[in-house]
Amino acid sequence: MTPSVRSRLWASATSFALGFGVGNYGVLQVPRPDQWVWIAVAVVLMLTGAAGVLFADTSRAVSFWAILGVEVFAVFTLVPLLWTFTVATTPEGATARTLLPQDISWSAFDGAISSGTLRSAATTSLLVALVATVVAVALAVPAAYALVRLQVRARRLVYGLVVAALLMPVLALAGPFADQLVSLGAYGSRLALVVPMLVVTLPLATWLCVTVMRDVPWTLLDAVRADGATRPQQLRRFAVPHLGPGVVAAALLVFVAACNDFALGAGLAPDRPSLPLPATLLVASRQVDGSSAVAAAGLLWLLIPLIVLLVLPRRINHLLGRSYR
């Protein structure tokens, strides 16, 4: 038995045992209809185990440990999302008790779309995030360029400041910001949220742009300049193709982060018209059938990051992975 065969058999055995355990627990402890979820998971795990045994002695370069891991990962990720969906589709007046949706009612989604409060909150979130992102990226790109390419004294200090601001508990600033806004008489206006929101967007934008800048092949710029390109040509031939995609991806991440900010929005706004969506959902969660509304709105809101992820999956993963290392 070669080592890889042995490893596959172990993976198969583990997968099988796991499936067996899950199946038994499901049959014994979990009432229907969720029992089917457990059984389905158990079947998949046990099939993986069987496939592992069948394919153990082939030269296919495939790791059954990895397959098992990805299966567990998929269950881990999807079950809460399914539950969110179930909560969102629970009919009015009912409480979701099972993971699988029993009666699907789209009224919460209808409500989330047609509700004036939620719509206004979403508009606030998008508007504030958009302005804060544009300002932050406009400031961050030159800053990141300087940090990566130019001689800057106190580079580490500046960088430390950015990181500190990135990791700071923003909530701690919400109180003083609110106090300031009240004394300026600006408490409660949408635009007043933009400046505090820069606390979230600016460090993140700088941090991500630094990563983008580090990945740029700068010798190419030297080559373009040596070839005698004019400034606009440098911009068109070098900056747009090499910096553009990265900066766009960074901006999208910053935008999503700003949209999802909770503490600042919840602290710096009364309920309308300036309360952003996450904070509005906190209020909504306390109302009758609030959970459904919150889950529905959350799933709809999830479309924004989902679209960003679907459009630029590779770049986003790359950017996030490289930034935080």
Partner: peptide, 22 residues
């Protein structure tokens, strides 16, 4: 207004602070 007394209090206070014209 919200039923819960502390929510009502918080909401009214924030709206009044924000000079909410509603």
């Amino acid at each position: 207004l919200p039923t819960d007394v502390s929510e009502r209090h918080a909401l009214l206070t924030r709206r009044l602070l924000a000079h909410d014209d509603s």
